[in-house]
């Protein structure tokens, strides 16, 4: 029961850290369209966005699309009628939401993009780590790990994607394979875990360990899939380090696997920084003020804001988490929200 008490107390502290004074919520309502609540990144993004926007004076209403594009489109249509100060959206489908975004902006409601980039239509602000870039970071780390193990960037990599209908995983694959193309001596086997379901990932790993017993490294596109991959490795009699493991998104379970020695690298999407950037620029977006390009400090990370065809685009670099830095509180997987208040950009 000590653990239960610790958990409850920890949850209470985390909630308290993310709760902001009600007096701050006087600038109006912003709607946050979250694509799903079935993954830890998105769940924590709700906490972070609601908390950070409250710190700069906005109340947030979150709508969950259950990973369905049509539901998110309906939510956009309904929200436009409510005339909020702004809409923050992490689109289920990167392009299918473009007409709804255009409709909202025509109605005078600014739209901010969180985490999942839309480039096919103009938006008022974008805060992303870049899914293709996550693939790039993963490729760099995987090249390093293969070189350390084999003496050169060579070997066999099993890439376990998420659902093949999800552009998020396809972008990571694109970025990863772009950077790995320079190393033809690395064989990449790519298979999808349908619906991002963990046991599907586990089955892929079990089968591939038999078909390709010389796999050097497994790269899974989400940390919760890594857990199932480890369960399959354990069932196959493997020990931590026998087959290297790299994952992406930075969820708490991925960090735990690094601490246990099963996983070597977790490529983090800087969730807190991405969410903080939304709050930092909210006033400018809501008031229609000009956003200046340049470098910005977002929770200690250097982010680059550029003006693109689709609007102001803030890119915050993803980080590679290893056993060396896994305990740093800046990683959202450690569930330690930043204590310093968010300040709007002047």
């Amino acid at each position: 029961m000590t653990r239960l008490a610790r958990t409850l107390i920890g949850a209470a502290f985390a909630s308290a850290a993310l709760v902001s004074p009600i007096w701050a919520q006087d600038k109006g309502t912003i709607y946050y369209m979250v694509p799903t609540l079935l993954d830890e990144f998105q769940t924590e993004s709700v906490n972070a966005i609601e908390s950070f926007l409250a710190q700069v004076g906005y109340e947030t209403v979150t709508l969950n699309a259950d990973n369905k594009t049509d539901i998110q489109q309906s939510q956009m249509n309904d929200t436009v009628l409510l005339n909020p100060e702004a809409i923050v959206i992490a689109p289920v489908d990167f392009n299918a939401l473009a007409p709804s975004i255009e409709e909202a902006r025509e109605a005078g409601i600014p739209v901010m993009i969180f985490d999942r980039q839309i480039t096919s239509t103009e938006v008022d602000f974008t805060s992303v780590a870049g899914t293709v870039e996550i693939g790039h970071v993963a490729a760099g780390e995987i090249q390093r790990l293969l070189e350390e193990k084999n003496g050169s960037v060579s070997g066999k990599v099993l890439q376990v994607l998420g659902d093949p209908g999800d552009p998020y995983t396809l972008d990571i694959q694109k970025g990863f394979e772009e950077r790995m193309a320079d190393h033809p001596e690395v064989e990449i086997i790519s298979l999808p875990a349908l619906q991002w379901e963990a046991s599907n990932a586990g089955s892929i790993v079990s089968d591939q360990l038999l078909a390709n017993p010389d796999i050097d490294l497994i790269f899974v596109h989400a940390a919760h899939l890594a857990v199932a991959a480890v369960a399959s490795l354990e069932s196959a009699g493997k020990e931590p380090g026998d087959v290297m493991l790299v994952s992406s998104n930075g969820a708490p379970v991925g960090l735990d696997l690094i601490r246990q020695g099963w996983q070597q690298v977790e490529v983090e999407q800087p969730l807190y920084a991405q969410a903080a950037a939304i709050a930092m620029f909210a006033d400018k977006v809501v008031n229609g003020e000009e956003i200046e390009p340049g470098s910005y400090d977002v929770l200690g990370l250097e982010a680059e804001l550029t003006i693109e065809e689709w609007g102001p685009n803030l890119k915050i670099p993803g980080a590679a988490i290893t056993s060396e830095n896994v305990d740093e509180p800046r990683f959202w997987g450690n569930l330690t929200p930043p204590s310093d208040p968010i300040e709007p950009v002047e």
Partner: peptide, 13 residues
């Protein structure tokens, strides 16, 4: 047991 835990989308499909 197979996945050594549970995620919110476990068993989907």
């Amino acid at each position: 047991i197979r996945t050594s835990g549970a995620t919110a989308n476990l068993g989907t499909g």
